[in-house]
Design a protein around this nucleic acid. Structure first.
Length: 444
DNA sequence: ATATGAATAT
DNA sequence: TATATTCATA
């Protein structure tokens, strides 16, 4: 069940408000049939406030904001007729199962009541109390549902109601509250599809909206998401460029196969197999299906498989899945390293045969694959902070010393993705074998 | 007048 | 943090 943290909280808030003024509630009473949003957790406080303490979960500021809004509490008295009307007016009130259909939960009641400045969602974001509305794609597949809270109840404008902006209706009753779109994986997938179909360069909000064909979304929703998408893409491209540059430098200097003269001169190049590194493009092991960016048109979905349950590491080895992209989708991957059994995965590209085991120390195959060794357990933990500089492939003596000091004192280890990192001990042994004496005392 | 996108707010 | 809103401008 996917919630934005905001949504259920506010829902709870208004439920709380309702409880104070009205017996109307989402529970096993006679309203159950109409309040179809209940099964989704709206009425389940244990869902909303896992801690079990209702009061703790309430943001009274928001509550007061809602009350000040003036139309919140009165509207808590919902007219069953409106609900009925709601349910037949195109958006089903039923809740889809969260794991099957992406549902965009919608939470926040907008405080801004000032004059309408928007256009296209006029008449779309009519609200209803504590019900879920859902949007469907052209294929009639339920993709997005906006859950609206206890807000002003306004019947959806009927088709003939095109002449909106009836200036006679000022604002408050216009039920125009915008809702927060939860960009679920499914929704995002459609977004990316649309963007790619249009071409990344030509993809502008309005066109994307068209292509996506989800009329619950507004151009602004898209624009906001697009902004983030582009930002991420930029980030990603920079990373790949950097990785490619590393790869290139390695090729230029490393030479093939057995050590070159250079290898003798540079202890950090010893034992470095030339082809021993993953491709610059981070093909991550246990790659989750939904990642930001492009939906990998090159990925053959026929090789996609369900990771055998009995092979799913439990707990997953810390070195196996580097954070998919900590910059990007933490929301839907709250536990990036935890792989639920049955999670569809792309198979790791032959880590044991294509890449050396054990891995080579000291030279980053990918500048951002950083780990640090836990001195207690000896296990590495993934580093999501990209600010650490990778080691220079061909460092001067000084930079070697600096790097050693840096690595061992932190100690951050740049490692090939998907490979088991060396233990701290083995690093120290290696350094000693190489006659490197400058091991910071705090690492011994 | 309106769509866009960066900046900023929530 | 993710998404919404504002704001400058094209």
């Amino acid at each position: 069940m996917q919630y934005s943290l905001i949504a259920p909280r506010h829902v709870g808030i208004y439920i709380f408000g309702m409880l104070a003024v009205s017996p109307l509630r989402c529970s096993n009473d006679e309203r159950q049939g109409e309040m179809e949003s209940c099964p989704d957790g709206v009425g389940d406080f244990s869902d909303v406030f896992p801690g079990g303490n209702l009061l703790d979960g309430i943001d009274f500021d928001d509550l007061f904001v809602g009350i000040e809004d003036g139309d919140v509490l009165p509207d808590l008295e919902m007219d069953p007729e409106l609900l009925a009307e709601f349910s037949v007016s195109g958006c089903s009130g039923g809740e889809e199962s969260a794991e099957k259909n992406a549902s965009a939960s919608v939470g926040k009641v907008e405080g801004n009541d000032s004059g309408r400045r928007e256009d296209e969602e006029e008449g779309k974001s009519w609200a209803s109390g504590l019900v879920s509305s859902s949007c469907q794609t052209e294929e009639n597949q339920e993709i997005l549902s906006k859950r609206e809270e206890a807000v002003a109840v306004n019947p959806p404008p009927k088709v003939a109601d095109k002449g909106r902006k009836s200036s006679t209706q000022p604002k408050a009753s216009q039920g125009k509250r915008k809702v927060k779109v939860d960009w679920t994986p499914d929704l995002h997938r459609r977004f990316v599809q649309a963007v790619e179909q249009l071409g990344v360069d030509k993809a502008v909000p309005s066109r994307i909206l068209e292509v996506m064909g989800i009329d619950c979304l507004t151009r602004h929703n898209i624009a906001s998401h697009l902004q983030k998408y582009r930002s991420h893409r930029k980030h990603l491209l920079a990373r790949e460029a950097e990785a490619a540059s590393w790869s290139q430098r390695r090729q230029m200097h490393g030479g093939a196969g057995g050590g070159s003269k250079r290898d003798h001169m540079n202890p950090w190049l010893k034992h470095v197999p030339t082809m021993g590194f993953p491709p610059p493009t981070p093909l991550q092991p246990f790659r989750p299906l939904h990642v930001w960016g492009h939906p990998s048109p090159t990925v053959d979905h026929s090789v996609m498989h369900m990771w055998p349950k009995h092979l799913v590491p439990s707990p997953p080895p810390p070195w196996a899945p580097p954070p998919p992209d900590p910059y990007w989708h933490p929301h839907h991957q709250r536990v990036p390293t935890a792989l639920a059994p049955g999670t569809p995965c792309f198979q790791q590209p032959l880590a044991t045969t294509r890449f050396p085991t054990p891995p080579v120390r000291g030279i980053p195959p990918h500048p951002h694959a950083m780990y640090k060794l836990d001195k207690g357990s000896g296990f590495p933990t993934a580093q999501s902070d990209y600010s650490h500089h990778p080691l220079d492939l061909h460092p001067s003596k000084e930079s070697i010393d600096a790097a050693i000091g840096d690595i061992l004192s932190k100690p951050w280890q740049p490692l090939p993705i998907g490979l088991k990192p060396p233990s701290l001990d083995s690093v120290l042994v290696e350094l000693q074998l190489q006659g490197i004496s400058k091991i910071p005392p705090n690492c011994a």
